[in-house]
Amino acid sequence: MKRKKMRKIRLLILGVTMLSILFVSGCMYPKERLMENQLPLMEQVSMVQAAIDEFHEATKVLPILTKEADTPIFEKYVIDFSGLVPRYMPYVPGGAFEQGGPYLFVLTDVETNPTVRLLDLRVVDTVSTVQSRVSYYYQKNNSLPVEGVIRPGYFTINFSQIGIGKQAQTIESPISGKQLPIIMSSTGQVGVDYTEDLELVLKNNNLQAASFEDVREIIPQNSIYVPVKSFYYDSINGKVSLAPFK
């Protein structure tokens, strides 16, 4: 009995010791590492922007990952944090994919004014899922799962034909918070229809769509996001409209 009692005491002491070590380790965790998951996204973007500006000033180049030449413009210039941490910034921000976050930090306007923006990977994942179903359907049926025509070259998708329920037929916009439709082109390319977001940004900033060569540019110019998985848009009679598919 005495031996059992001593064993319980030793286990209790060991347990308390381990808890103490864990507590102390948590208290000693570097403050900046705790902060990286607490900073608002806007501040994370500002922190990376400051590092990019300093890096660019010092090296005359940009810390970006190499991508194929035909990579869509808003996915093309992904920031390579290995060139920035720790010399130009203390840590990779918590919202970044590299830290388990849902965003890629990317650059826009790289030729004249390199600007840090966020690419929402949740949008990419959802569109990729629909794309794989559309591609598989086409391979089996030699036709696209068309439900209706939006305008020449663009269609709404018959989601029931590709086995996708209502919950995955739209995507929440990181820009407006609205549910945006997922559509496809005449070549079977799947993307997000940002018409509603574009019109909202134009209205809120008193802008004219006709003033932009690529209407999508108004989103990164007036928010911290890029319109990933988007199509081209035109201005027709002052209204935003999907451009003829190229």
Rank of each mutant, 00 (worst) to 15 (best):
F245E: 14
T170G: 07
T66Y: 10
S128H: 10
S211T: 11
V124S: 12
Y136C: 01
G94R: 02
P181C: 01
G26A: 13
M1P: 12
N222V: 00
E199G: 11
S223R: 08
F23L: 12
M28H: 06
F159G: 01
S176A: 11
M28N: 09
G101C: 09
M28R: 06
K5G: 11
R3K: 14
Y194I: 13
K239Q: 12
I224V: 08
L12H: 08
Q161L: 15
V123M: 10
G188M: 04
D193W: 08
L34E: 10
P114K: 08
P93W: 03
E36K: 15
G238I: 03
L198K: 02
T170E: 07
Q189A: 13
P63E: 05
E196C: 03
G191A: 11
E57T: 15
P145S: 02
M1H: 13
Y194W: 08
Q49G: 10
E57F: 05
L121W: 02
L121Q: 12
L198H: 10
S46F: 05
P174D: 00
T195D: 10
R33C: 09
E68F: 07
T115R: 11
V48T: 10
V124A: 03
P114R: 03
S211A: 13
L118S: 05
T66Q: 15
T17H: 09
M18Q: 12
P145A: 01
N141T: 03
I73D: 08
L22C: 15
N141V: 00
E217N: 09
Q131I: 05
G191N: 04
T115S: 11
N158V: 00
T195H: 12
I171L: 05
Q161H: 09
R133N: 09
D53Q: 03
D197I: 02
R10G: 07
P145H: 04
S132Y: 02
S25N: 15
E36P: 08
I182D: 04
G15E: 05
S235P: 07
A209Y: 05
K4F: 12
A50L: 11
G100C: 02
Y136K: 15
V45G: 01
I79R: 06
P145Y: 05
G94A: 05
E172Y: 08
L12V: 06
